[in-house]
């Protein structure tokens, strides 16, 4: 019983945070607390490891650069996903430490999977609102204030619940996996970290290139600044 309670203590804030951050993706207020670099840092900070959350959030931010949240298209829901990922990255980490490499790998994996499932739940959420609105279209056509406000409140509440459930469930599943993977990790830590970071950075570089290459001069600017950035790294060492 005590063990169950101890396991639930981190679950509640993580799930609630996932709900609030998931709400931000589309419904309210779209202030981009749902960006991975914010959500994952908060997720990690809630469990006492903000630095681990930040590292994981930066990795996911590189991936999120690729998917633009345009209109009615289906896209990964990075909000709730990044909270879960940041919380998973906190497994084994301390206040100012980087994530353990096993937890880091699992956190990024879980972030991607949760974002993909989150995208699907957003579609279901939108269909549910439409189903809820359909019998009320006559009231809307009659200019009913209560119906207009009620639909908004229903949609936002449902979105909050969606994020809480998704975040809570995924965290429950992922946390023991991260603990296990951490314990059995065998590949060299620096090499593993390099593989994770190189793969997400490549996605970010490709995304920047694809997003902006049509604007004249940007390819050259990107390549030159990439060289300058690399020189800064070498010079700062």
């Amino acid at each position: 019983m005590t063990e169950l309670f101890a396991a639930l203590v981190p679950l509640v804030p993580v799930a609630l945070l996932a709900g609030v951050v998931g709400l931000d993706v589309v419904s309210f207020p779209q202030a981009m607390i749902s960006r991975p670099i914010v959500g994952a840092t908060l997720g990690g900070a809630f469990l006492g490891a903000p630095e681990a959350g930040l590292v994981c959030g930066t990795a996911l931010e590189c991936l999120a650069l690729e998917s633009l949240p345009v209109g009615a298209s289906r896209y990964p829901e990075w909000g709730s996903a990044s909270v879960v990922a940041g919380a998973v990255a906190a497994v084994g980490a301390t206040n100012s430490s980087f994530p353990d490499v096993g937890a880091f790998a699992v956190a990024v994996l879980v972030g991607i999977v949760t974002a993909w499932i989150g995208g699907w739940t957003m579609v279901q959420h939108r269909q549910l609102i439409a189903r809820f609105a359909r019998p009320r279209l006559d009231q809307l056509a009659a200019g009913s204030r209560n119906t207009v406000v009620g639909l908004q409140v229903f949609g936002m509440t449902l979105d909050l619940v969606r994020g809480v459930l998704l975040g809570g469930l995924m965290y429950c599943l992922a946390r023991p996996v991260a603990t296990l993977v951490n314990a059995f990790w065998t590949v060299d830590e620096d090499l593993s970290r390099a593989v994770i970071v190189a793969s997400v950075a490549a996605v970010a570089a490709a995304a920047v290139w694809k997003d902006f290459h049509a604007i004249s001069g940007t390819r050259r600017l990107f390549v030159v600044s990439l060289a300058v950035g690399t020189l800064l790294v070498v010079a700062g060492a």
Partner: peptide
């Protein structure tokens, strides 16, 4: 878009360096 191209070019090497633990840049892994 132009500013983003510059930001992207500067940000990625610096962020990668920090994320891999700030190892000496001329060592094998970096």
């Amino acid at each position: 878009g132009r500013v983003s191209a510059v930001l992207g070019g500067l940000a990625l090497p610096l962020a990668v360096h920090r994320a891999i633990g700030g190892q000496p840049p001329l060592s094998p892994i970096p």
